[in-house]
Amino acid sequence: MLEQVKDWDDDFYERWKPIAMGFVNEAERCLQCGKCTGQCPAAAVTPGYNPRKLIRDLVDGNIKRILSSVELWQCFFCSGCYSTCPMDINFPFFIFMLRLGAMNEGYGWEDVKQLEAYAEKDYLKDGITVSIRERNPFVVDTVGDIGKIREAAGLPTKRVVSKRGVAEINMISDLSGMTSFMKKIGGVDLLDCNTCDDAQARRCKTKPLPSKVGKITTKTRFYNYGEPSGGKTNAKT
């Protein structure tokens, strides 16, 4: 059903290219061969995720479908698609840029919110780029968090970064805008428990969805590329 909707911004991609100063290019050369999807580890375990469809929708200008999709957030930047692509399309870069666009539309903040503790406690304060706080409950139950693994290996729980290193990280973060971005994440409000509905309450137990980030109203994403044809029921799982 969703495949047949013709609601496209035809010149989005062409207009985006000059704005991005040459960083965005070559997606129009996509042959739709599907090699990216064939080798993708994320697609192997998530049937709904399909890089080929995302590229097609970007070039066609099916912007609403891309930005509001959960699938946009399932890539983990292994860059296997980039190395396999016969036309050398840098797909992970498009994912990175489109995620920023999606956040501007209010999608994906429940995932970004999870970085809050890492950003404030590890990265900016101690300069640690790999957090010792493991978030995957399966890993915590079976192996333990990274701090415990480091202790078992005879290393200090946290990696010690020099004072100069921390100062440099803080300066680079400030210059690149990362600090203000992280503060923005830290400042988001959680859903109001008095007003949220049952579906939101169920989501809250695992992934709290902030109601607003600055001027952006946050929204729940949809499985736009999955089976069955997307929607709320699918998004709950």
Binding site: G61, L67, L100, G101, K219, K232
Partner: peptide
């Protein structure tokens, strides 16, 4: 909303595209 078309309401991809281009 039940799907993304409902979530966007009457807004077209053109509108969402304009907003996103402005952001970029």
């Amino acid at each position: 909303a039940d799907n993304y078309l409902e979530a966007y309401g009457k807004e077209t991809s053109q509108d969402a595209g304009e907003r996103t281009l402005k952001y970029f």
